[in-house]
Design a binder for these strands. Structure first.
Lengths: 212, 212
DNA sequence: CTGAATCTCACCCAATTTGGGGGGATTTAA
DNA sequence: TTAAATCCCCCCAAATTGGGTGAGATTCAG
């Protein structure tokens, strides 16, 4: 087996803004134990070289010419799953954050951070963490929480929950030890309260409003 | 409107270990701007007083005599949603973390942290963040990510995704601009690959293995 | 180039599910 | 004592579902 300096963290950058990219390169290389192996201004070039660059950490922008960062994260994870990817962007948009995390990002920083935070973040992700900006962490945690102003009763919520897991009325009845007809009544009431007329609509609305 | 010192953070503790609880009280009260209004060794007593204590932040243990912390978080959020709750526990169990966050926890720390981290965490949660221990943050972020070793093709995954949202075969066919019969074929193949024989089983298995 | 995998569509059948309509009983909290 | 929540029952017709079988087209790696 060849020698590997485990304390040297190899970093790739994917960032189209020349100023920011070069700034990051300098900042990181100043740091003992960090080595920026390559810096790209687009995903395509990065993806062509990731397997030879063998980065431990990738700092990836989202808004990029050509392929966007989300797609870039997905592809990176497919061909070089070993890399830890930290998104560095100006966007604090909910949707983008979740897409990035689903695609495989291991951290998410906004560009308004103090530059020292970048250093910490890289150490953090190599140490088994998931560096996030304050607001991002809040977004992520909030995504687990349910709406406390649900129009549905707790029993109705329970029924809808099971319905959303693909259970049939009979399944639900068994699971809750009630009659199938009772389940039907609950579902009728759910539809009435949510102003929908089908399972799919009910689940969609319930998901969007975080009722389940 | 009555005078409110916005810089004074009122804290409640719920922790059954006397040593730890008293340690936290001292640690926090030493800090300018923090005031421990009450410290309880069980949830029941805390819940009876939360509306008069009016804490900004609650530090809550999970393993407690009587009502457990998860239940405690839920009830607190129901009767006093304003409070930010930080779980402080020894457990790093996946299931417990997600249950706590779903119940309404805004942060999650493990007791092996440096005590200074507690101070930071309280500032962090008051500043709109979501303080988490390193490993917890990783758990949370990982929960968004899909299994990269899925036996399903991308089309099959797409179909199963829509199925899990309660869509019927016809709905899915419309959504993907393919024939209903094709959807049926995909689903048959999904069932074969996942070794299941119904929608509910397929969704359950897919969720558990993070295929969708 | 060949074979495996994937994606697409078709037709058969029977059982189950679903949505909508109606009616009622009991408990519980405001 | 109302209103709500929860529970149960009946009817019906349309739609959905699961299983079987077969088959053309494309893509992709060995």
């Amino acid at each position: 087996m060849s020698y590997q300096n485990t304390s040297l963290i190899k970093i790739c950058l994917v960032e189209d803004d020349n100023i920011i990219r070069e700034g990051f390169v300098m900042l990181l290389n100043e740091n003992q134990g960090f080595k920026v192996v390559s810096a790209y201004n687009n995903c395509e070039d990065f993806l062509r070289n990731v397997q030879t660059d063998k980065p431990n950490v990738v700092l990836m922008d989202i808004e990029l010419p050509g392929m966007n960062g989300i797609e870039g994260i997905e592809r990176t994870k497919k061909i070089y799953p070993h890399a830890q990817i930290i998104v560095v962007t100006v966007y604090e948009n909910d949707d983008l954050v979740f897409k990035a995390l689903c695609a495989g990002a291991g951290g998410y920083l906004t560009k308004n951070m103090p530059s020292q935070r970048l250093i910490e973040a890289i150490r953090e992700i190599m140490g088994g963490g998931a560096p996030m900006s304050t607001n991002i962490a809040r977004l992520v945690v909030a995504s687990f929480q349910k709406n406390h102003n649900s129009p549905l009763s707790s029993r109705e919520t329970e029924v809808l929950e099971l319905l959303s897991r693909g259970k049939s009325y009979s399944n639900i009845a068994e699971g809750l030890f009630i009659d199938k007809e009772t389940v039907r009544t609950h579902i009728k009431n759910i539809y009435w309260k949510l102003e929908v007329h089908s399972k799919a609509e009910a689940i969609e609305k319930a998901m969007k409003e975080k009722l389940i």
